[in-house]
């Protein structure tokens, strides 16, 4: 469904990604890991068509997003939704307006219909609609903001692929657990593909069975947990070293 072919990307002549290639199939869950600044988030921005690579192709359903105009990209974005780092909620809109943003902007649905959908979605992400629907995002906790952002992305176009950029960064363990649980729930119940970017190894293990490791803009690993455990690539070993014990012990956590 999503395919990156020899993608090279530089920002202001600073190389970010070098010759990265991989593909993600329908209903597959993939975690992209790597140290901070290794180019993980850039991959999600490239898949969304927010940036264009200098070299290589990004194919979504066999169509190259890099050569599309903005209108064609919008069609692709109806199939893919992205949850940005720290949620990126519109801070001048209420929680209700944030979650119903797509429907307010792009459909002719009545306000009451949209509100009903928003309430339903807030229930799905584990929040009490009555308490927060009219609240501004800055009055929410970090964990609640992430869940609202996930709800906003899910309600947008019923996407087939969800991209999560560092969904648990900066959250306490309890909020992290809730967000991970929600991501798994959305993946399973909606039968969608999930691509998660993170540098938190325990989160990665909880979310997927395929792992891609990016280091210094290069893809240095692509495989499952068992392969990750025994991988002897020095850059992967260095990155995983602090978590070696937890990778050894933990089998994949199943929330759903």
């Amino acid at each position: 469904m999503i395919q990156l072919e020899n993608v090279t990307f530089a920002y202001d002549e600073r190389p970010i990604l070098k010759n990265v290639s991989f593909s993600i199939d329908e209903t597959e869950s993939v975690v992209i890991m790597g140290p901070s600044g290794s180019g993980k988030s850039t991959i999600l921005r490239l898949i969304m068509g927010l940036e264009c690579p200098q070299e290589g192709k990004i194919l979504v359903d066999d169509a190259n997003i890099c050569v599309m105009n903005e209108r064609q990209k919008q069609e692709v974005r109806k199939r893919i939704a992205m949850v940005f780092q720290e949620g990126a909620l519109f801070d001048s809109l209420t929680v209700g307006e944030n979650v119903g943003f797509y429907q307010i902007e792009h459909t002719r649905m009545s306000r009451s219909e949209i509100e009903q959908n928003v309430r339903q979605m807030l229930g799905f992400v584990g929040l009490r609609a009555d308490e927060i629907i009219d609240v501004l995002p800055d009055q929410l906790s970090g964990g609640m903001r992430r869940r609202v952002a996930i709800g906003r992305a899910l309600l947008s176009t019923n996407p087939r692929v969800m991209l999560y950029d560092e969904p648990t960064t900066g959250l306490d363990p309890e909020a992290t657990e809730m967000v991970l649980e929600l991501i798994n729930k959305a993946t399973v119940e909606r039968n969608i593909s999930t691509v998660v970017v993170t540098h938190q190894i325990p989160d990665a293990i909880a979310l997927a069975n395929r792992f891609i490791v990016i280091h210094g803009g290069e893809m240095v690993f692509d495989g499952d947990l068992d392969a990750l455990r025994v991988c002897d690539e020095p850059r992967v070993r260095d990155f995983l070293q602090p978590f070696r014990e937890s990778i050894g012990k933990v089998n994949q956590r199943q929330f759903v």
Binding site: M48, Q74, R77, A81, F84, Q85, E86, F90, F101
Partner: peptide, 17 residues
């Protein structure tokens, strides 16, 4: 501020210019 908190990118991803 909207740009630095990715709100502009979020807008684009929801089909809004």
């Amino acid at each position: 501020a909207m740009k630095s908190s990715n709100q502009l990118d979020a807008m684009v991803s929801f089909g809004i210019d």
